[in-house]
């Protein structure tokens, strides 16, 4: 049996089968070189076993738990922000739907013939007219100013929010 590095390593790990083990032991008894190699490899293995465990900073756990707490706090704040924006959007949508329904119901009074398609078309026409009048040459500057102001204010709060989230 030729004693290779692999055989020596497998012997150390107790992975040789009975036949291999017998052959290896015969070779070990007859060869001083194999004995030296095995002793050296065992010494290497023992040295690796004696490796000492390292430890991070003493306050590692407390710092980690603190950052976990902060991270989840900011995530909770994120979800509150998204939920509030979404709820405003939903409320506005519901109001529009309720308004349209109210218009349809009032238009379809006991004396009038009820034609839902026409009623809805009328309501949308009215809404469109309202928007057109708001954007007419006389009031476009006022509407533009209000929208710009709204964009600037919401932009400021949005970037401030992003900044605080990142710093957290």
């Amino acid at each position: 049996m030729k004693v290779t590095d692999e055989i020596l390593n497998r012997f150390i790990d107790g992975e040789l089968n009975s036949e291999e083990l017998k052959e290896f032991k015969d070779e070990l008894n007859n060869s001083r070189d194999v004995q030296t190699q095995l002793r050296a490899l065992q010494a290497a293995s023992v040295s690796f076993k004696n490796i000492k465990e390292d430890s991070p900073a003493v306050d590692f756990t407390s710092k980690l738990m603190l950052s976990l707490h902060k991270k989840f706090k900011s995530r909770r704040r994120d979800s509150i922000f998204i939920a509030s924006v979404a709820s405003i959007f939903v409320v506005i949508s519901l109001l529009i739907i309720v308004y349209i329904l109210a218009q349809i119901i009032s238009a379809a009074g006991p004396n009038s013939s009820f034609q839902p398609g026409l009623q809805v078309a009328d309501i949308f026409e009215k809404i469109a007219q309202t928007f057109v009048s708001k954007f007419s040459s006389s009031s476009v500057s006022i509407v533009g100013t209000i929208i710009s102001f709204g964009v600037i204010v919401s932009g400021y709060f949005y970037f401030d929010f992003l900044k605080s989230t990142r710093s957290n």
Partner: peptide, 26 residues
């Protein structure tokens, strides 16, 4: 994994032999 482990051991073994540290480390 075994190849990586055996190679690491062999490197240390060679160093131990080179520096006559076999008996000290046993």
């Amino acid at each position: 994994i075994k190849v990586l482990l055996y190679r690491s051991r062999n490197i240390l073994r060679d160093m131990i032999v080179q520096n006559n540290l076999v008996e000290e480390l046993r």
